[in-house]
Write a protein that binds this DNA or RNA. Sequence first.
DNA 1: CGTTTTTGACCGGCGC
DNA 2: GCGCCGGTCAAAAACG
Length: 569
Amino acid sequence: MENKQDNKSLLGKACMEEKTKKSNGEEEEDRDVHAKTQKEEELKSAKAQVGEIREENERLKLLLARMVKDYQSLQTHFSNILQQEEIKKSKDRSPAHQENEEPELVSLSLGRASSEPKKLDEKKNNNLILGKEDEKCKEVLTLGLDRRFEFNSTELAEKNPSSENTFEELKEEEPTDIWPPSKILKTMRSEDEEVLQHTNLKKARVSVRARCDTPTMNDGCQWRKYGQKTAKGNPCPRAYYRCTVSPTCPVRKQVQRWSEDMSILITTYEGTHNHRLPVSATAMASTTSAAASMLRCHSSTSQPGFGTSLSASNSTSTSADLHGLNFTFSENAKPHQFYFPNSSISTSNSHPTIVLDLTAPTAFSHFNRLTAAPRYNSPTCLNFSSPSSANSFEPKTLQTSWSNGYSNYGTFNSYNKNIHVGALNLAKQQKPQEHINQPFMQMNNLSPQQSLTETIAATTKVITSNPSFQSALAAAISSYIGNGGSEAPQNQGGGEVSGLNLKWGESLPIKPADSSAQNAIGCESTFLNKLLSSNNPQQQGNLSIFPPNSLPFSTSRSASGSPADGKDH
DNA sequence: CGTTTTTGACCGGCGC
DNA sequence: GCGCCGGTCAAAAACG
């Protein structure tokens, strides 16, 4: 480079000296020098670009190396703990011993991923957890990365629509079970945890109860009915649906009218989508995922009667599976609680179930009766019937089509921006004869649409806007970003969490779920979506959310024009 | 004709 | 072991 510059200056000097000669041949020579200079500048900029790319490459390599390292350390932990478990199982464990161990198990299991009961056992000091928390957090997050790899692969597959197999192939390797890590971890947990894991393996369920005049709730996903049964204790048949967005998607849902108030539809979701969701489906998905993750937290704590809150002493960690993304985070030193509005948690069933009651306040009395019913046998019934209008995140306008899907667009006004979100359409237009419970709806004075709008917003909002939830999430993210986050590029479409400039999310082109979606409304009432919604004015019609199956802190800016998302068939 | 729904059969878990 | 029950399968029917 320097030589070239020298040459350039020499040439320029020579040029100046000989200018007086003014011969034609010399002018041509002058032009040649200019051209050379231009080429050299181009070369320079190109080299600079290459350098930047190299740097980026290095950063990515470092990130990958870190991930691999974390994975390996976890594997080491795994084998160590497995050995210790073997040794321990050979001994008879006294109940007292179990009791002593339990608090630690609680603390660890909350993070869902971690696996170090024995390590901590050695320390015999809960406070030390605080010191170890960061490390734990890293590991926890690392476990989450397993999932993120999966999602990343999805992203890759979407980036390369021609290679659709990418995701499929990876999926074959990935367990399609809802809680893949739990399978791995199962063997290395204590017996108590194994029970808990077992319940998780039995698939946590999120039951959403909402007023709905259609046979099925319009949650944005595509479902195919595969069975119907009349369950005991309810004259209304229970319909079984499976998600058909992806052929391998394990998600099922059951839909049943509540026998005591047939205007209320009970939709029970089970599983996590292993594919990208249409934007219109993210509202419900995020709600149920958050609830499910809370349920996992709940089930992984063995505190009695804590249905009203999830709390633990000293240190807690919790995980959230948002849009299929596993977030596991910890919060130190201070107990925090997650309140579930209108929700109840039941672990007495074979399947741990959390019930989100999205019926209007008017229906709340029913809900109370319901939760007292033996089937749900819930210790708790939380009233959230909404008072939270004070919440600054409350959207000024919200619409939903979960009840009928007649209106066109859901718009919420947030941060002084109108964000038009995708249509939430799920339900196909119903045939008249399918409105089996219409009379009940006619009896219902409250507009189902309105009530559902308010309640779904409130539900998600309360779950996700809980300061503890946010701070825990923010702590986890900042912890992660703090570790590797310098590599995280600036995301123009990122959202902010708890005041942290955490850039995340990915812009998803909004696309109606299908043709009928244009007549459906978007119900992006979830606080999460708002939280993660894009402030990116450049991408009209795009909404930055947690991409269902993508790297949460994606380094990719590929969102725009991704051909794969929201594709309905 | 391809896709979805219906519906009886089948299966596995659980309690007795 | 038996029966009940929830859940799934799969062939047939219905639908677009």
